[in-house]
Design a protein around this nucleic acid. Structure first.
Lengths: 129, 129
DNA sequence: CAAGATTGACGGCTCAATCTTC
DNA sequence: GAAGATTGAGCCGTCAATCTTG
């Protein structure tokens, strides 16, 4: 718990200072990017552990900042897609190295390759369950 | 990140359902208990990664629920101590097995003893840094 | 003046209720 | 009627300012 809190806090500070966005925004941008640049609102909510209403407010702010755009879904007119804008993609790319640096400094630097392998496989197993 | 979120969420649900308190309350109770049943407000804030003002509101609620009591500090009249009440201690003791069960189910169950040793020593190293 | 703690104003999230579309 | 998304009310935390004591 303490290590997790340290990484998250340090990451938040670093991203605010360099790219000018909160850590939670980066997590959102990278999730959308990994999904191919677009996600449905409900999918976004599930992936970020926000409720649907929380996702609505969150995307409101991302959209106001010009990082994403809402786009009506063609196959289901109830649904909306969150689409990464060029600015959003650029922001994510600019943030990536900062994120890697912090994770390396607070986490990776302290473990050997074999330890990393043990931890990685263990976490993978837990995610599948 | 995902495994951490899963453990925290499951723990929160389990504690609300059984003992009737949020997960964050348990973390607070156990921190005070580990400190010997009493802590200064600022120490409490530091240990829970809350700001001082956040700690004030938080302890307000714990106190309203009868789990802790504020007690003026004898050596420094600016300071207050947060003291675990009998009810607070009993609540923590009742919650302990629930917490262990969830951690075992979501975390411990998926790793061998040697893997646990690797993870534990790695996290200890990070905490020291 | 610095440190411990609290308070007022406000941002961000959740719950319940609502609207639209399937 | 159920699912996708949004809105209103309210809780919880932070920041800046304040009060008290060292």
């Amino acid at each position: 718990m303490h290590v997790h809190a340290d990484v998250v806090d340090t990451l938040d500070d670093a991203l605010r200072a360099t790219v000018g966005i909160p850590g939670a925004w980066y997590e959102a941008l990278i999730e959308i990017a990994l999904a191919g640049g677009a996600m449905r609102m409900s999918e976004f909510a599930a992936e970020t552990t926000l409720t649907r209403s929380g996702a609505t407010r969150f995307v409101d702010r991302l959209e106001a900042a010009g990082l994403v755009q809402r786009q009506s879904c063609t196959s289901d007119r109830r649904a909306w897609e969150v689409v990464l804008t060029d600015k959003g993609r650029a922001t994510q790319l600019a943030a990536d190295p900062i994120v890697l640096d912090v994770i390396q400094d607070r986490f990776g630097r302290h473990i050997s390759d074999t330890e990393a392998e043990v931890i990685s496989s263990a976490l993978d197993r837990m995610r599948e369950a």
